[in-house]
Amino acid sequence: MVLYKKIEEQTFNILSELEINTPNKIDVFKIAKHLGVDVKPATLDSSISGLFVIKEQKPYIRYNDSEAPQRQKFTIAHELGHFVLHKDIPLFVEKNETVLYRNLDSTTGELLKEKEANSFAASLLMPKFMIDEQIENIPQGKDPVIYLSKIFKVSSQAMYYRLNNLSYSFLGMY
């Protein structure tokens, strides 16, 4: 089991290596390239948001090109989570090919590996240190979840879950 504090540290280190210190610099394609992962859109079944595949020892991510950009971004970050956290404990499909994919089970966090990948994605796309900085900038009377989701270019649902998991007290009004 990967500890969630370790996930926070891993994403912080990745962002630091790339000198990403503001929300507008978070680019999942740049991060994937830095990690050596090939990322491309694909036409996938509507029940599959993305795939992480290791083929001939090379990592690939394919994401559903028919989904909303915010969902694609989270899916890529989720699949990067599988690469960073789970590449050594793969699901074998063929002798030299491994596949992990994001579907409805991963959205609801049914499996531990899926929860960890979701946590990685949330931490990568909405780092706590950046959220802490941005909270101070929320204009009076603005909905913090909606405001922050626009700053980080993620869905309001993803931002709500992230803030809730980080135990921000202002969420008590929701």
Rank of each mutant, 00 (worst) to 15 (best):
V53M: 13
V53F: 00
K55V: 04
K55R: 05
K55D: 10
K55M: 04
E56N: 12
E56S: 11
Q57C: 08
Q57E: 14
K58T: 13
K58N: 06
K58P: 04
P59K: 05
Y60N: 04
I61T: 07
I61D: 02
I61E: 00
I61F: 03
I61A: 05
I61G: 12
I61Y: 00
R62L: 14
Y63H: 04
Y63A: 03
N64Y: 12
N64G: 06
D65L: 10
D65V: 06
D65P: 00
D65T: 04
S66D: 14
E67D: 15
A68P: 02
P69R: 03
Q70C: 03
Q70S: 11
Q70P: 00
Q70A: 09
Q70D: 09
R71A: 01
Q72M: 07
K73L: 03
K73W: 00
K73M: 01
F74I: 03
F74C: 01
T75D: 02
T75N: 05
T75V: 08
I76F: 03
A77H: 03
A77T: 06
A77M: 06
A77S: 13
H78Y: 02
E79A: 12
E79V: 01
L80I: 04
L80W: 14
G81Y: 03
G81R: 00
G81D: 01
G81C: 04
G81T: 00
H82M: 07
H82P: 12
F83Y: 15
F83C: 03
F83N: 13
F83M: 05
V84F: 10
V84D: 01
V84N: 04
L85H: 10
H86Q: 07
D88M: 05
D88G: 07
D88Q: 10
D88K: 10
D88T: 12
I89V: 12
I89Q: 14
I89F: 09
I89D: 13
I89Y: 10
P90W: 01
P90E: 10
P90I: 05
L91R: 15
L91M: 05
L91Q: 14
F92N: 04
F92Q: 08
F92Y: 15
F92T: 06
F92H: 09
F92V: 06
V93D: 13
V93Q: 10
E94P: 00
E94Y: 12
K95A: 09
K95N: 10
K95F: 11
N96S: 11
N96W: 00
N96F: 02
N96D: 15
E97W: 08
E97G: 00
E97V: 15
E97F: 09
E97I: 13
E97D: 01
E97R: 07
T98V: 12
T98H: 11
T98M: 09
V99A: 07
V99H: 05
V99S: 01
L100Q: 15
L100W: 01
L100P: 00
Y101A: 02
R102P: 02
R102V: 11
R102T: 15
R102F: 14
R102L: 05
S106T: 12
S106L: 08
T107Q: 08
T107W: 03
T108A: 11
T108R: 15
T108D: 05
T108N: 11
G109I: 06
E110S: 12
E110G: 06
E110Q: 10
E110D: 13
L112D: 09
L112F: 07
K113H: 14
K113P: 12
E114I: 00
E114D: 15
E114W: 06
E114Y: 04
K115A: 13
K115M: 13
K115F: 03
E116L: 02
E116N: 12
